[in-house]
Write a protein that binds this DNA or RNA. Structure first.
Lengths: 280, 280
DNA sequence: GATCGCATGTAGTTAAATTACATAAGATGC
DNA sequence: GCATCTTATGTAATTTAACTACATGCGATC
């Protein structure tokens, strides 16, 4: 963990003077790196030695060491400032920008993915006897990808992109079914309908979607699709898929860990089944 | 440029004492970050003020500032160390590890994606009157995703995952067709066959695959799928997908930039077509 | 061979950071 | 409700780190 996130986390537990210092640093961390204790003390309106104490509270041995740590944490945040591509950009330039944007999206995920939701989702997937995955439009490819990743872990897993198939599968589901729904906005009417049917069937509904959306509120477990990022100036569109793919990655990893060595043979068998289709 | 590379570059032009300091720092930069001028001076067997002078020679205003800069340059080298997940990892732990692994994959892409290949591929896609996208197995979802992104830019684009459909489409192609092939290994026999048929039809064949593979060598333009990165652990790493998805992202971005404002209306129309399916 | 200049070391000074101490505010017990 | 104890914070003093000014020595050039 970087010192900056550590600071953010421990901000509430700090004393009055110390939190003033913390806020002064967070307001302009770059400036803090180039400050002396006196500078910072003046800025936060506290006495000089409070800065030293503040640093020790955060686990550093001295103020200079704190500055070094702070400088470190600023790198990882500033290197992911993604810029929008613009007409006239060279290939090298837009390649760089898109990679930055996608890395930034993952960086966002690091701080904003609720651990409990993942744990619950993994538990639900682990208990399920069947997994159904629904996605339409752009999410259809994602559903397919998730199916491809999850079916290997031993539980029958099917992906549907057809609304009618989804309705039937949702209606036929029971409490031993986990249903994974992918929707960027969480406002697609047919998806919401399917989710409603699935809940009536007592299936466990996991939605990867916008948390403050009808679909997000309907599901048993909701994980953000990062869609709340789209449209903002900093995070350019197209990054949501990277986020969702990484969430699938994380869910599959969690599930594989939960099932443990039991799935190893399964994975080997599946891999082996492809051998005859490859040339050496 | 980071201070560390700057130091490496200017090492030959430094004076005797100064280069001793430079070498001492390069020998263990991490230790230098936690040193005082006196510590470093002893290590490099020079006098104390030489350290200050050394820093100024490198363009820093003071030794503390140099330390901060040094700390900065060390981050970019040491971050993105991806660790394998292991049994007993907490959710928080494997979430962190997977995000790291995916960011590392993108970092790899930054250094290893050949600009010229991207330029050629964008040019080929731009000139094409039709785009056909082929992928099987795990790559089928990727092909579907690419189709979903590229069809919006005005050129008729179809994705096939069925080998027979792929054969027919490849045979029916002509010099105005661009064919995008996704294959992780580049060794799937049926994919190679399809590529061969496509070349006979004089279509432009773009392969996103392992560069040193039969398929990679067969294609007009080859872009790495990052498959050379996959380690052999049983828990299938998903980093290649992230890489390929980002490549698709980059290709679509390049194509959109090339077409310019011409596609803006097209994008708006497509977006508008979904409005009635969403609830407010 | 002498002098000039540059590189480096020594001593001293400045300033920055920490420690030790004192005080005030808030909490706790009677 | 008052007294005392604890904790947080400021003040003063000390230590330590970093830089400046100066001195010396080595190498180069005339």
């Amino acid at each position: 963990m970087t010192i900056l996130t550590h600071l953010k986390q421990s901000l509430p537990s700090l004393s009055k003077a110390e939190s003033r210092i913390g806020e002064a640093i967070l307001a302009d961390p770059e400036a803090a790196v180039n400050s002396t204790t006196a500078d910072l003390a003046r800025l936060a309106q506290v006495s000089d030695p409070m800065i030293s104490r503040f640093c020790k509270t955060l686990g550093c041995t001295s103020f200079p060491e704190f500055k070094v740590q702070l400088a470190r944490s600023l790198v990882s945040n500033s290197s992911f400032i993604s810029e929008a591509v613009s007409t006239g950009d060279s290939a090298a330039s837009y390649i760089e920008k898109r990679i930055n944007a996608n890395q930034a999206a993952l960086e966002y995920l690091r701080g904003n993915l609720p651990t409990e939701a993942i744990e619950q989702a993994v538990a639900a997937l682990g208990q399920a006897k069947r997994i159904e995955i629904f996605g339409m439009g752009g999410a259809a490819a994602i559903a397919k990808d998730a199916q491809h990743k999850l079916f290997r872990l031993g539980t029958p897993t099917i992906a549907y992109e057809d609304h009618l198939m989804q309705r039937m599968a949702a209606a036929a589901a029971n409490e031993e079914t986990a249903i994974l729904l992918f929707s960027f906005t969480g406002r697609t009417e047919s998806m919401i309908e399917v989710a409603r049917i699935a809940r009536q069937s007592k299936a466990k509904v996991i939605a990867i979607t916008h948390p403050q959306s009808p679909l997000g509120e309907l599901a048993d477990i909701t994980i953000t699709s990062g869609n709340e990022l789209e449209d903002t100036t900093i995070y350019v569109p197209m990054t949501t898929r990277i986020i969702i793919l990484t969430i699938i990655d994380i869910l599959a990893t969690g599930l594989a860990l939960q099932k443990g060595p039991a799935v190893d043979q399964q994975l080997k068998t599946i891999k082996h089944s492809l051998e005859d289709t490859k040339i050496s």
